[in-house]
Each structure stands twice: as structure tokens, then as C-alpha cells.
Simulated assay, not measured.
Amino acid sequence: MEKVILLADDDIDDTEMFCEALQDIDQSIKCYCSVNGNEMMEQLYSLERVPELIFLDLNMPLLSGLDCLRVLKEQQKYQQIPVIMISTSSHKNDMDAAAALGAICYFVKPNNFKDLKNILRSITANLDEKLKEVIINLHSGGSKHIFYLE
């Protein structure tokens, strides 16, 4: 069965690398990409079914990742979708804000394609009740890219 993932990131290079990594990992993943939160919300509303996972870049024009997360968590239909915030920085204030709004994880973008693939492989192989456990294991296992948000 096809797995649906949404990605909102205004950095085109990061988006291309992300989507390429997902395709290398699992051909059944359909990744819908958008360049800002407004576009991502429009894609979400047009989908026939709720996605398994959403990745939101923290800093985007028009509707930031945090603002988009706030909108998602206010709508009952989308409250249960796991959301992973992505960013190039690991500022504690940003992580705290993401956690307060309901993100399950904070993902600092790796520069290395292999690292990105390994992390995405672990996450996308567990798009079920094991997702939280996998993120905790990545975080406690020393990954400098994954921060579990409690």
C-alpha cells in the first residue's frame, strides 16, 4: 500500500535531496512537496486520505512551520498525524516551541545524503505505533540529527 508523506520546505535543494532519499528507500512512498505552509495545507486538504507523516521546515515564508503545526493541531481530522519539524539549527527554544505545539520530533537536516537516508529509512519503516519508539532510539542512540520531543 502506498505511504503518503507531506514535506513543506522552502529550500529546493533540501527538498530534492529529501525526495530522492525517500524514493531510494521505498518506492511505495508518495511524497508531496510544497515550498511553504500555505501550499502544504492546500495539498493536505486536496488529498483523499490523511497522510502517514508530515515534515515541516521551521522557517518558511507565508506560513512558518510552527504556524502550520498550530493550524494542523487545531483541526480534529489532522491532530493525530505525526509531525516532524525540520531545520538547519538545533536551538532549544525552537525545539520547545515545536514540542508545545505537538510535534513528535525535531530533525536537524544532515548535510550528508547517506545520513539522511539512514534516518528516513528508520522513520518510514515504522509509520505506525512504533514511530515514537524509533525516534526515541535514534535520539538516545547518539544521532546528532534527531531530537525526541516529550
Rank of each mutant, 00 (worst) to 15 (best):
L138C: 02
S122W: 05
N38Y: 05
C31L: 11
A99V: 08
S46T: 07
L127C: 07
E20K: 10
Y32G: 06
V108Q: 13
Q75E: 01
Q23W: 07
Y106A: 11
I123P: 02
E2M: 14
D13P: 09
C19D: 08
P82Y: 05
K130I: 00
N118G: 12
I135P: 01
L69I: 03
D11W: 04
Q76P: 05
Q75D: 03
V83W: 03
S28N: 14
D11Y: 08
C19N: 11
L58N: 08
I86A: 14
M95K: 15
I12R: 09
K3E: 15
K144N: 11
S143W: 04
A98S: 07
N137H: 08
P61K: 01
L72T: 03
E52H: 10
L69W: 01
Q27C: 08
L116C: 02
E2Y: 11
F107C: 10
L138R: 01
S89M: 15
C19A: 12
Y106M: 11
M40L: 15
M60Y: 02
A98F: 03
L22S: 00
M60K: 00
N137P: 01
K73C: 12
M60H: 01
L101R: 11
L63F: 05
D11Q: 09
D13N: 14
I135S: 00
S122N: 15
P110D: 14
S87I: 08
K117Y: 03
V4R: 14
K77M: 15
D26W: 00
H139K: 09
Q75V: 02
A100T: 09
M41A: 04
C68Y: 05
F107S: 05
N93G: 00
V83R: 03
H145E: 07
D9S: 06
Y148K: 13
L127F: 06
D10E: 14
H91N: 13
N137K: 11
D10Q: 13
L120H: 09
L72Y: 02
M95W: 12
D13H: 12
Q23C: 07
L149E: 14
F113A: 13
N112Y: 04
L7K: 01
G102D: 03
E42W: 02
E16C: 11
I5L: 14
E39H: 01
F147K: 12
S90K: 14
A8D: 11
F55I: 01
M1T: 14
D13C: 10
G65K: 14
E150I: 01
Q80K: 10
H139L: 09
L69F: 04
D13W: 04
L131P: 00
L116K: 00
H139Q: 10
G142F: 08
H139T: 13
D115I: 09
L116S: 00
F113K: 11
E129P: 00
I54F: 08
L138I: 02
L6H: 04
A103G: 06
E2I: 13
A21N: 05
I119Y: 12
V50H: 02
C68N: 07
P82R: 03
N126A: 12
M95H: 11
C31Q: 07
F55R: 04
Q27W: 03
E52C: 02
V71N: 07
Y32H: 14
E74L: 11
K77Y: 11
K77G: 10
S34N: 10
L56K: 05
G142L: 06
S89Y: 12
I81N: 00
